Amino acid sequence: MDLDQLALLRTAEGEAALAAAAQSADTDSLAAAMALRSLGFAPELANAALTQVALRRRAASKFGADAARVFLTRAGLEQATREVVAARRAARLAAAGVRALADLGCGLGADLRAVTAAGIRAYGVDADPVTAACAALNAPDATVTCGDARDFDLGTVDAAFCDPARRSGGRRVFRPEDYSPPWDWVAALPQRVPYTVLKLAPGIDQGLLPPGAELELVSVDGDVVEAAAWCGPLARVPRRATVLRDGTAHELTGSGDELAPVGAVGAYVTDPDGAVVRAHLVAEFAAAHDGRLADPSIAYVYTDTPVTSPFGRCFAIDEAMPFSLKRLRAALRDRQVGRLEILKRGSALDVEQLRRDLRLSGPNPASLLLTRTPTGPLALLTHPTP
């Protein structure tokens, strides 16, 4: 989408095209485009409306009920913050006394919307003209400009939020030095604005974080969606795992440096949430449940009693065996397992190839955890605990 197409979508005719496109079950089909054209919409408008509606349908998990009304780009939607995550971050900033915030690299305005809703005066800047125009429409209570984030006058705010662009030319960028703005400028932001939050990719090299920053890993319904570095007075603990399940938030904190005890495989095994693992808080989780690891480098936590926790899924171990395809196939056949969930940590096996090799047949479900111990590869036949 370009600025002309965005302007066209905002006209009365554009609104009518969007409404007509929303009635289509398949916005990507040629038939949908032909249907809109048969209603009198020009090809360019029909295609723009169908593309926008398709993006809005994908945006429901990030923009909630307002997804049907926001304006989106493909790249912007990919990096946009989920509504529930943005709202929690804005509430924490408001509780810290932040009054005015600069969103440097504001994208489509998801965080701006949350910040203004929390009563904070917000300024957004984005280098892409179309993205900035969308943000201005999506967050009407914020002041949005198009430009280089590095040129923003930070003296007008008491806090900064920066989500550097991690896409270039439609492709994901992995090296921090290729971010926009570049990482050296981003990492130095807390020196200029002590109340700074940096939104980062979950796989960020933690050694790159500004000194003294709190690293928060966030997951939503089992998916790790982002990392955030809380800097200066905003930092409370070295590491935090925030797990959002069914709209409820749970937090686990710690140093990130603790080591979990190592011991034997138990009657139960818990697979910690990805946010716990990436925040290096597996030891804290294990300590809370009298758990242990069978291998110090693998994050499966073994216990002698079942674990009930939002920070992980617990399985009762029905059988633990050294990995052998023949033996595993026989065990699954004896249990008449036809529906098998396969999880793995510390295993190089290809899950889909293994599923084909197992030749599953039967009415029963089971969960298979592939891992290793100091004695070699291990297969755990399990079932989830209630």
Rank of each mutant, 00 (worst) to 15 (best):
A267G: 14
R99V: 07
F323L: 12
A127Q: 10
L281S: 09
T371Q: 08
F285C: 01
A127P: 03
V173M: 02
L215T: 03
F161Q: 10
L208M: 13
M34F: 11
D273A: 14
A348E: 13
Q206Y: 03
P182L: 08
D26M: 07
V269G: 04
P363L: 09
D290Y: 08
A227F: 03
L93W: 08
V337S: 13
L293W: 05
R335L: 05
A249T: 01
D111Y: 00
L325I: 05
G207Y: 08
S180A: 13
G155I: 09
G97P: 13
W185M: 08
C162I: 14
R99I: 04
S61P: 06
G376P: 04
R356L: 14
G169H: 12
A86K: 04
A35N: 11
V125A: 05
D246C: 07
D151S: 14
A48G: 03
D246M: 04
A32K: 01
R292M: 04
F63P: 01
A142D: 02
G119P: 03
L325R: 14
S324W: 03
R92A: 15
L378P: 05
V144Y: 07
G40N: 06
T253N: 08
V53R: 04
L39S: 10
V224P: 00
M34I: 11
G203W: 13
A288Y: 07
C134M: 03
A287W: 12
A35W: 11
V98Y: 05
F285E: 09
L30T: 12
T81I: 01
F161T: 05
G207A: 12
L380W: 04
V265S: 06
R74S: 15
P202K: 12
G222K: 00
V282K: 12
R236T: 15
T308I: 11
V85C: 05
S297A: 15
L18R: 01
